[in-house]
Design a protein around this nucleic acid. Structure first.
Length: 864
RNA sequence: GGGCGCGUAGCUCAGUGGGAGAGCGCUCGCUUCACACGCGAGAGGUCGCUGGUUCGAGCCCAGCCGUGCCCACCA
């Protein structure tokens, strides 16, 4: 006790750097974050973390997302629910493979040179070496994940789940192999899914090329931005109704440079008013042409290979890169006078989200997953409310996508990932969780899209396909917290897989978080200099270039960062605001000092216990606390974290510290037992309420509360509290009166320290008059002398009696000001009440309130 | 082309039908024995524009302007 006391006395500032590592250690050692499976998912609470990339580092999105999850998890844990925050990391196929490839490059090696086995071994090594970084960073934030039960999407047990799912869906006919047009990413030399493609605006050249007619009578002109693909053209299409070309349908044109005969076909797809109205058809290199080709049974030729170079099909251009081939083809065509026209043409083209390279649409043999059948129950689950989105509007985004869902290309030409459980022998194909028996089988070299394994996250982490206790206790989970950018990539697929393999939704709530933008409104990005490292906010570190003031962040501490991020968040995107983090820091410091006042003030041997508030301010703070608790809890349960954070701030600052602590100070000095018990009660309840949002400072304060043991994070027993309307009204009047006097003093230029004689000419202050005297620095007397000023307060006025301390001129000025304001308000109210429409049509309650207001204003004016 | 947001104090944002709010910044006053990362008091908004509904509109409706994001196969 004495150690703790001296500890408190010296620390007038809360020091997160000293406290946080110590507290985190205690939490981790306690085993509180690691629940043993028991009970049912209904009574338990669980959230599966969106698994961070194993080689990733914490960014602002993680910081917000995990602050939210930790708030929810701590909130439910404290309420006594068996709570598991399912934890683990993602192998992140392309991202991780790319990092290791870069490292190899430094050594002058390539993955091909060292071979698949060696390469995969290297990635595992890499993971051993760097895979802990993000875990450690999450701990700095105070995340109460079940770190003792860490999963990895490539672990043996997890792989079992992945193979099981693949084989089951294959046997169901939903997974199949097909030669189809895919998004080829030359950067990662792999196919990628539609969702990993982003459109960017670029300016290309639109070439108008003349294709001579076989009849010799002129040429047909086509427009293209990709002249090099002409080498794989197999037809020309026009609109069937297009009068200009009608007579040419069925004719033949000769493909320049190649000499192939191209049939001129009719297809409704062609827009007569675009370009020349004649479209060259390249089924091998354009998604639309691919479809047209299928409709018309056209040949698919590949002039561009998977290495991004021209194939033998390209003849003289073989071996060139696409860009080289484009220049060469255009040059040749120009020589032959076949380029009729060329113009700049801005349009959107697909790029790889991963590598940033321009997508090369190619026809390729890949594995696909048919989604429509899986989507149906997942659509129903959202439509009938078993899965709820917050904010609600994202349900529509989800449904729109799901209702138009297309097959998913799940194979990737990478080495890092779950290798397809598929073997070939000649024309035979074998799919199974175990390799086939017999000689001569060769396993498919491809791996699965990372999101394939992520889709199983909520149940594969709990041990599925085995029927484990963890699965029985924690699936379905309660919520998933994520950004809207992965609604399709992850959320939708988890819902589909959960319903397919567990016949249950994976989570009841989907909370879509804000995306935090840089302070200037741009996207947060390392390369733009707009990314903010959350650890630099916690520890103090350099401000990124997007902050013009430069310098270092102060060491705000994790609580401040958490509070700030929650306060910033809302249903929409928000700009990062360092001020909000600063506000969070002020709050932690304020709370710390409030705790010091209380803990250094109570008598030795006094510990929290039953409270029977006698004084009106005690009843008031307990009533206000009850309201704050209801408010904060309701906000957290509605995923409205900014209002939860702000409501907490308002209570701690605006009620507890600004008023209650000031009101109770004299009694604390007098060793008033009721005051001490009320203070301890309110302190424990307040830190308990605040803990899910600012866990470190509250846990640290809890450790100093006399007579309590254990961790605040484990929850505290809560005593019943009641709303006390009478006390709230009395204190509301008192606060208003004190503020009115302070305002009057400021404009009257009374010395701040002066005690001013006054007379209380108002009712309703029977229990608080002495408090008003102290807080407003007045000395009430019952004298009969004429007042020099009268300050309106609820229920009457406080009259200022003559004294040397005040300047009568200033006081009169103030009074005139107030009279004018009151007069204006009276006129407003009178006009409103004189309005026939208002009196007859507005609710009686509203009219009555207006009448009472007018009467009050008149009273106040008279008292001046 | 379709869809979804946003536009309120210098800045970042609350506020969904009955007297315009918070934090930061700014001004003034306080070394008041928890906190100067403090305390007290203030200044500062034709609530993007136009029209409509209503007794009453920041809030509901329509149009417009500005701005951001998502989806989409016009070469």
């Amino acid at each position: 006790m004495s150690d703790l006391t001296s500890d408190l006395e010296g620390k007038t500032r809360y020091d997160p750097a000293e406290v946080e590592p110590r507290i985190m250690r205690r939490w981790l050692d306690s085993g509180l974050f690691h629940p043993e499976p028991a009970g049912t998912p209904d009574e338990n609470y669980s959230i599966a973390i969106p698994p961070p990339n194993v080689t990733g580092v914490l960014h602002m999105g993680h910081a917000l997302n995990n602050s939210i999850q930790d708030c929810l998890v701590r909130y439910h844990r404290m309420r006594g629910q068996r709570t598991k925050w399912i934890f683990g990391t993602d192998h992140a196929g392309i991202a991780t493979q790319t990092q290791v490839e870069r490292a190899l490059e430094q050594e002058g090696l390539s993955r091909e040179e060292i071979g698949r086995e060696e390469f995969v071994a290297r990635v595992w090594e890499w993971r051993e070496q760097y895979g802990d970084a993000i875990v450690e960073q999450l701990k700095r934030l105070g995340a109460s994940c079940d770190f003792e039960d860490e999963r990895f999407t490539l672990d043996e047990a997890y792989a079992e789940a992945v193979l099981e799912v693949f084989v089951a869906l294959y046997n169901k006919g939903l997974i199949y192999r097909d030669r189809y047009m895919v998004n080829w990413d030359p950067g990662s030399r792999s196919a990628i899914s539609d969702l990993e493609v982003e459109d960017r605006e670029v300016t290309d050249t639109l070439y108008y090329l003349d294709y001579p007619l076989a009849s010799g009578s002129g040429a047909i002109t086509v427009a293209t931005v990709r002249p090099e693909t002409m080498l794989a053209d197999t037809a020309i299409a026009v609109h069937p109704e297009d009068e200009r070309y009608r007579r040419l349908i069925g004719e033949t044109a000769i493909l320049p440079l190649v000499g192939r005969k191209l049939k001129i076909i009719a297809d409704e797809y062609v827009k007569p008013d675009f370009g020349t109205g004649a479209l060259k058809i390249t089924p091998g290199h354009d998604p639309n042409d691919f479809e047209i080709g299928r409709r018309h049974g056209l040949q698919q030729l590949s002039a561009i290979g998977e290495d991004g170079r021209m194939t033998a099909e390209a003849g003289q251009f073989e071996g060139m890169t696409v860009a080289e081939a484009r220049r060469a083809v255009v040059h040749e065509l120009r020589e032959q006078g076949l380029v009729a026209h060329a113009e700049e043409y801005p349009h959107t083209v697909p790029f790889s989200h991963r590598s940033g390279e321009r997508i090369e649409p190619l026809v390729s043999l890949q594995w696909f997953m048919r989604m429509d059948e899986l989507a149906k129950p997942a659509i129903d689950a959202v439509k009938d409310g078993r899965v709820k989105f917050a904010p609600e509007r994202f349900a529509k985004v989800y449904l729109d996508w799901m209702e138009n869902i297309r097959p998913w290309c799940v194979s990737r030409q990478l080495w890092w990932g779950h290798r397809l459980p598929v073997w070939y022998r000649g024309k035979e194909t074998y799919v199974g969780t175990e390799p086939p028996r017999g000689e001569g089988w060769e396993q498919d070299p491809d791996v699965l899209d990372t999101w394939f394994s992520s889709a199983l996250w909520p149940f594969a982490t709990l041990g599925w396909p085995k029927d484990t206790p963890a699965l029985r206790s924690f699936y379905p989970t309660d919520a998933v917290i994520t950004g809207r950018d992965i609604i399709f990539l992850w959320v939708a697929r988890m819902i589909m897989m959960g319903l397919e393999f567990r016949e249950q939704i994976p989570f009841a709530d989907v909370h879509i978080t804000s995306i935090i933008q840089a302070p200037d409104g741009r996207r947060m990005s390392k390369s733009l200099g707009t990314g903010i490292d959350p650890l630099n906010l916690i520890d103090g570190g350099p401000r990124p270039p997007v902050f013009p003031q430069g310098g270092d962040f102060p060491a705000y501490g994790a609580d401040a960062v958490r509070w700030g991020l929650l306060a910033m968040s809302s249903g929409q995107d928000v700009r990062f605001s360092e001020e909000k983090v600063g506000q969070g820091q002020q709050l932690t410091n304020k709370l710390w000092n409030a705790a010091r006042l209380i803990l250094l003030g109570v008598d030795a041997g006094t510990s929290p216990g039953a409270v029977t508030p006698s004084k009106i301010e005690d009843r008031w703070i307990i009533s206000r606390l009850a309201r704050a608790k209801a408010e904060v809890r309701a906000r957290i349960e509605r995923y409205d974290f900014s209002h939860a954070a702000l409501a907490l701030y308002d209570f701690i600052y605006g009620e507890l510290c600004d008023w209650y602590l000031e009101l109770v100070k004299p009694r604390l000095r007098d060793h008033d037992r009721d005051a001490q018990l009320t203070l301890l009660h309110v302190l424990v309840e307040t830190i308990s309420l605040a803990h899910p949002i600012i866990p470190f400072v509250t846990e640290e304060i809890y450790a100093h509360i006399p007579g309590v043991e254990g961790l605040l994070a484990a929850g505290t027993e809560s005593l019943p509290e009641r709303i006390d309307e009478e006390a709230e009204a009395a204190l509301a009047r008192t606060i208003a009166a004190v503020q009115a006097i302070r305002g009057w003093r400021a404009v009257s230029e009374v010395k701040a320290a002066a005690i001013v004689p006054a007379r209380l000419a108002a009712g309703g202050y029977e229990e608080t008059a002495a408090q008003i005297e102290r807080l407003a620095r007045l000395a009430f007397s019952a004298g009969a002398e004429a007042p020099v000023a009268s300050v309106p307060v609820p229920g009457g006025a406080i009259e200022i009696l003559p004294t040397d301390e005040l300047d009568p001129g200033a006081a009169e000025e103030k009074r005139a000001d107030q009279r004018a304001k009151l007069q204006a308000e009276i006129e407003r109210a009178q006009a409103k009440l004189a309005n026939e429409g208002f009196v007859s049509k507005a609710p009686a309650q509203v009219v009555q309130a207006e009448r009472e207001k007018l009467a009050r204003l008149h009273e106040e004016l008279e008292s001046l």
